[in-house]
């Protein structure tokens, strides 16, 4: 079999940080160290998922004697990321394919190729055994706006999925999904799109697409589950005397009565003005009172505030004196 075409080289030894002559124990140790560092379920490193995929693919190949032998025969003179072509005869030796397609190694990811080799011979889908192989699952993080969470939305999801061609080679093909997300999503919500991952082989089920939703920061609102919080700045005199103000909500502004004597940090609940819950009910909106002061008061404001300061017996720090007397 002669397969022409190029794919990108990945230096699995370099990825694991081991020498090409490293023993199995050394490879396992290097993998464990990197897996602890980059495993997406426990790591907070940047690009942990991508790095762990590289590390995992490298380990899956190098821990298996036959796959490692196949990998080593690709040669050691390539640079990571460089286009390369397997040496003549390599495919005949390691990739058993019964198909007739001769489209070469173009668009083939080296990790997909080695994942498709069973290691003890050939993978079922490549003309070897016929045991069912489930399709690959895909995990996708999707960020939506608060407004989309409130009203529901459709997300465009672009994936590059390995599918086996007529030659039995795992070739990356683009797939586009429009996923309908009903209203009520919240931070960290998990959703499943059954059967939208990679294709199963030999009767194996198709993989799934798993979405994790995050909510994009909003200019006004902060979300905690289905409850929303909005800062409500008041002038000192509004807080003291009470007032009625307009408060923004996701469905437009509402008028809110502020009682006299309101203080900073107090929360006023607007029932049912938060995010809708997935099946029924609605979160609340909390307006968090802040006291804002004019940083550049007019002469008249300064004069009036001076009068107030002279007249008022209010001591916001009286508890300091109480503590002092107790001590």
């Amino acid at each position: 079999m002669q397969l022409a075409g190029k794919m990108k080289y990945k230096d699995y030894y370099q990825i694991l940080g081991v020498d090409r002559n490293a023993g199995a124990d050394e490879i396992k140790k290097a993998y464990r160290k990197l897996a602890h560092k980059f495993h997406p379920d426990i790591s907070k490193e940047k690009n942990a998922k991508e790095k762990f995929q590289e590390v995992g693919a490298a380990y899956e190949t190098l821990k298996n004697t036959e796959k490692r032998a196949a990998y080593d025969q690709l040669g050691s003179g390539h640079q990571a990321g460089q286009d390369f072509e397997p040496p003549p005869g390599w495919a005949s030796q390691f990739v058993h394919h019964g198909g007739s397609g001769q489209s070469g190694f173009d668009n083939i990811d080296l990790s997909d190729l080695f994942a498709s080799l069973s290691g003890g011979g050939r993978r079922g889908g490549m003309g070897g055994g016929k045991f069912p192989i489930p399709g690959q699952d895909f995990e996708v993080a999707a960020q939506i706006t608060l407004e989309q969470a409130a009203c529901g939305t459709e997300l465009d999801i672009n994936l590059s999925v390995p599918e086996y061609d007529g030659s039995g080679l795992p070739r990356r093909v683009p797939r586009v999904f429009k996923a309908r997300i009903s209203k009520g999503a919240s931070e960290g919500q998990r959703l499943r799109l059954a059967g939208k991952g990679g294709k199963g082989l030999n009767g194996g089920r198709d993989g799934d697409l798993w979405l994790t939703i995050s909510i994009a920061p909003h200019a006004l609102f902060r979300a905690d589950g289905h409850d929303l919080y909005v800062d409500l700045p008041l002038a000192p005199w509004e807080a003291v005397l009470g007032t009625t103000v307009e408060v923004p909500t996701l469905n437009g502004a509402v008028r809110l009565k502020i009682p006299a004597g309101s203080t900073a940090g107090q929360k006023m609940r607007l029932a049912g003005r938060g995010l809708p819950k997935p099946h029924d009910g609605q979160g609340n909106l909390y307006a968090v009172i802040q006291i804002s002061v004019p940083t550049v008061p007019t002469d008249r404001e300064r004069e009036l505030l001076g009068q107030l300061a002279a007249e008022s017996k209010f001591d916001p720090r009286r508890h300091f004196n109480r503590e002092k007397s107790v001590a």
């Binding site: 586009v176 919500q189 998990r190 959703l191 799109l193 997935p278």
Partner: peptide, 14 residues
Amino acid sequence: MKIEITDAVWLDDR
């Protein structure tokens, strides 16, 4: 390219 439209299933207590 074909665009597949699909409903996402919530993983929740229901």
